[in-house]
Design a protein around this nucleic acid. Structure first.
Lengths: 207, 207
DNA sequence: CCTACCGATCGGTAGG
DNA sequence: CCTACCGATCGGTAGG
């Protein structure tokens, strides 16, 4: 009778993956060694290969499971069937909330997908495309008179730029909070820089 | 009398740097080997070391000279002393024009500065900060009633997100042009998604 | 005695 | 599940 997996197998695997995401984000995929990772996890190098076939499969699991989280957010927001304006606001708020806890995964996704094998990379990019499409539809619903259909995706990418670029400068615990930043993004998307900034329900513009 | 450098030294060096930027962008700094780079340049590997002390100095020169280009754009636009709205529009247009021809450098700047030595990285980040500050000032000039001074830089980062994120999806020669995209960014910055999209001087909204 | 440049190989370290 | 290693390839430099 074959031995079953340890009850803690999945937990160990997840904690290794978390450490790997942090190390890949910090040193880059190629720059991070398996020996470093083993030390960071407090396990031997060969043990890492008990949980993952090779380094590339770790990278794939980081990127793929992270995209699943983002797709889940999109799906949960969609199910609420909010009016167009609230729908987009909620997507932005929920994504920024996720980003606050997923900086390493986000950096790995942006910087290291190029090191995946073709099939793995195609799977991750497919999930990315689905998320972009969801945002593009949310924007199109907000702009029913949008003349050029070809602008849907570029407008979504403008919005993704605002929130995804945060991985280069916005840090958890910093002066600018993720929630406050999400409100600034909503302000920008809805009115640009045209209005005065009264972001958190303070004095109205009539003052 | 000491022999002078070859007349073609600077040209050779520049062409090596261009090839290095392309290779680093494609494979990542650690993933690109000096052997590959030598082959791409059509020279021997030792000859690379005639032009650059080591691999890291190539990386530094790519990032540092690229930041100098961006700072030059900022400076040239500043000298024109345009009214606030035109100033920001021109900055966006000029940056997108530069990005169209500098995708590899831009990707290296975003993805590989972490591999620089502390002093080199500090120099590049200092130049980045100067460019961010110039955009923050341009935005502040456009919003004289901006209440929270702390929002200047985050607003600049929102704008940088829109234009810098293009390195992940916008390709020269693709369906969406850099100039057309710059106009969409200006539209977003000035009015958000509020207005209808009539980007290139087509029919007015009175229709 | 400088520069420009080659074929061959160095000491170390990567993933496995 | 450890120490001890491997085939290969890395960035950088030797002699000439």
């Amino acid at each position: 009778m074959a031995r079953t997996r340890s009850a803690t197998f999945d937990q160990q695997r997840a904690s290794i993956l978390q450490a790997a995401a942090g190390l890949f984000a910090e040193r880059g995929y190629e720059g991070a060694s398996m020996a470093e990772l083993a030390q960071a996890c407090g396990v031997s190098k060969p043990l890492l290969y008990h949980y993952y076939r090779d380094k590339q499969h770790m990278l794939f699991d980081i990127a793929d499971s992270y995209m699943d989280r983002l797709r889940t957010i999109v799906e949960q927001v969609r199910e609420r069937q909010l009016p167009p304006e609230d729908h987009l606001r909620t997507l932005i708020a929920q994504f920024m909330q996720e980003y606050q806890h997923s900086q390493p995964q986000h950096m790995v996704l942006v910087q290291d997908v190029k090191f995946l094998a073709d099939l793995q990379r195609a799977q991750v990019l497919g999930k990315e495309r689905a998320v972009v499409e969801a945002f593009a539809q949310a924007i199109a619903a907000l702009k029913p008179r949008l003349r050029k259909k070809a602008l849907r995706v570029p407008l979504a990418m403008i919005l993704f730029g605002m929130i995804n670029w945060t991985f280069t400068w916005l840090k958890p615990g910093g002066r600018m909070g993720y929630k406050e930043f999400a409100e600034q993004v909503v302000e920008m998307v809805e009115h640009g820089l045209a209005k005065g900034n009264v972001p958190t329900g303070a004095a109205s513009s009539s003052n």
